[in-house]
């Protein structure tokens, strides 16, 4: 199957611009901040963890998942907690993935269900769906009130698998 990835290009360019602005130590702080805010969602900067200022404030998604506060050596944790799951269920980072305007939602908006399922699996789990996954996802999309809701349900479900959570 052929995925049309050309639609992603402008996003990559914009991300590069933001990255350049952020890493340019000569740029005034305010300017760097503004360019990062273009990738903002509900007060969160959407960028790689390594490009965000550290430590992030207590309660930030990354701190919830155990990011160090950098007060002591080896201050990070990898412990499972309920607030992590609540954030995966219903937090702004998950909502950012579900709403129009996110790269994934734009990619699949007008695709037939079969292709949309491939995009969702490759984006979130970095693999193609097997036959059972595919029929499950297709059923979820086709029985939903509308395509966007169906897509949202599948995206949400994949984000809330252990397969997504753990590096293999």
């Amino acid at each position: 199957m052929n995925l049309d990835l050309s639609g992603r290009k402008p996003d990559l360019d914009a991300a590069r611009e933001a990255y350049d602005a952020y890493t340019d130590s000569q740029a005034p702080r305010a300017l760097r901040k503004r360019s990062l805010d273009r990738f903002g969602y509900q007060g969160l900067v959407l960028a790689r963890a390594s490009e965000l200022p550290a430590p992030l404030p207590l309660g930030h998604f990354l701190r919830q998942f155990g990011q160090s506060d950098r007060e002591t050596i080896d201050g990070g944790r990898t412990v499972a907690t309920v607030p992590q799951i609540l954030a995966m269920f219903n937090g702004p980072i998950t909502h950012a993935m579900l709403e129009r305007g996110s790269a994934i939602a734009e990619q699949i908006a007008d695709k037939p269900p079969g292709e949309a399922v491939d995009v969702i699996f490759l984006t979130i789990l970095s693999r193609r769906p097997d036959a059972e996954d595919r029929s499950l996802a297709l059923e979820a999309i086709e029985t939903a009130e509308d395509a966007a809701t169906g897509h949202g349900n599948v995206i949400w479900a994949l984000l809330n698998t252990r397969e997504f959570l753990f590096v293999q």
């Binding site: 097997d130 996802a137 979820a140 349900n153 479900a157 809330n160 698998t161 397969e163």
Partner: peptide, 15 residues
């Protein structure tokens, strides 16, 4: 929530 969790659980079985 229930519908979504059911999908997640089935996809996660092989993992």
């Amino acid at each position: 929530l229930d519908r979504r969790l059911a999908i997640a659980q089935r996809i996660d079985r092989s993992f």
